[in-house]
Design a protein around this nucleic acid. Structure first.
Lengths: 207, 207
DNA sequence: CTCTGTGAAGAAGTTCACAGCA
DNA sequence: TGCTGTGAACTTCTTCACAGAG
């Protein structure tokens, strides 16, 4: 394999492959072809092979891919090999749902701290974790927490981000419907739920 | 303007523009240039003008766009002109968060029914709405509910979708981490929260 | 002169087609 | 034969550059 710029879209698909592989593994499959994996995740085999080819040659011609090996490779590419601690900021309804969300653990994430600025909530237990004052965000660095999830109201999001960046956070999953300004070294992924919903009617048949 | 295929990516950006325009409007702006709007939403002016050009010419050369007019145009393109009723399936933590989510109303959505298959929940009030048995999903057609939000566990998602499709639902926002099989006339947008999080470490500096 | 609208150039991403290994 | 890995063709999307309206 020669070097080529890796499409962001390929990275976006890797967790899909990973999920498919985990399922295959549970069902006892030891190896899988690009074609079979494609069926499972509803993408096409060419694309799967192309995506993998950016990172090296993981398969065996005439046979396919070893499920366990491929799983390990993808986890390594995505840097999911270690458990990563994340802070949750915003202990409202969305925060509560995220705290109980089972999907995070599957990729090695652990919500290790919860913050809110509502005095009524601070000190309360929340899914087994004590809610801390947002003034304590600066302790994140010493606590080795490098990721954060923002589930605050939109108005509070930019201020929260600034504090998180000061505290050395390097990756943020943002649910506030706002563009967040951050230094280049910090990666932000925004999920704007209402906005996704907003483009649904466009695709509906004229009624 | 001549006909050209409209990029899905342009459609994806329209709600972003809409949000920016609503904010500008609140601040009393009556007109805006592509450059100013671009600053606000952190995209580039060329792209904004190009996106609009797919749908016609909305601006005035030398001046810019009238905020109110452009807002109306975008709402029309996205078919957000009417209030649309949506059913929420799954009254767990995520469902609860979605029910209270303020962003939906901004685009004209109203959650008009909530379903769950847990007998303990059925009949209870949930954000002012009585939770119904999922067996009643078939009533959606007569109730003029054409959209649905799936917030069930992954295993229940495909069965739920099948029932929704039977009930005449034509657009679905899916939070279950699964590819959903639907007829072509039905549009599904999936938001897989854990998967978005999973690609975050890839972008982190090697530590 | 300012700012829109758009063809054309360029970049990014996907699909094809086939060489080559098992 | 079966399936991978990958250059090349193709398609889609973005950015540029500028004609032309106000």
């Amino acid at each position: 394999m020669r070097y080529r710029k890796i499409p962001d879209e390929s990275i976006r698909r890797l967790p899909i492959y990973l999920r498919g592989l985990l399922l295959l593994s549970e069902q006892g499959a030891r190896s899988v072809s690009s074609h079979k994996l494609a069926q499972r995740v509803h993408l096409n085999p060419h694309q799967i092979r192309k995506d993998f080819s950016y990172f090296g040659a993981f398969g065996t011609p005439g046979v396919g891919y070893t499920v366990a090996t491929l799983t390990k490779q993808i986890r390594a590419i995505l840097k999911l090999g270690v458990t990563r601690k994340a802070a949750l900021v915003g202990a409202g309804r969305l925060g509560s749902a995220l705290l109980g969300y089972p999907g995070f653990r599957m990729y090695g994430f652990e919500i290790a701290a919860v913050f809110d600025n509502n005095p009524k909530k601070i000190g309360k237990k929340f899914g087994g974790i004590t809610i801390e004052n947002t003034s304590r965000l600066k302790t994140l660095k010493s606590r080795k927490i490098g990721l954060a999830i923002i589930a605050t109201p939109a108005q509070a999001a930019q201020e929260t981000v600034d504090r998180l960046v000061d505290a050395g956070i390097s990756g943020i999953l943002n649910f506030a419907p706002r563009h967040l300004a951050v230094p280049k070294k910090v990666k932000v992924i925004t999920i704007d739920i209402a906005m996704e919903f907003a483009r649904l009617p466009y695709y509906l048949p004229a009624s």
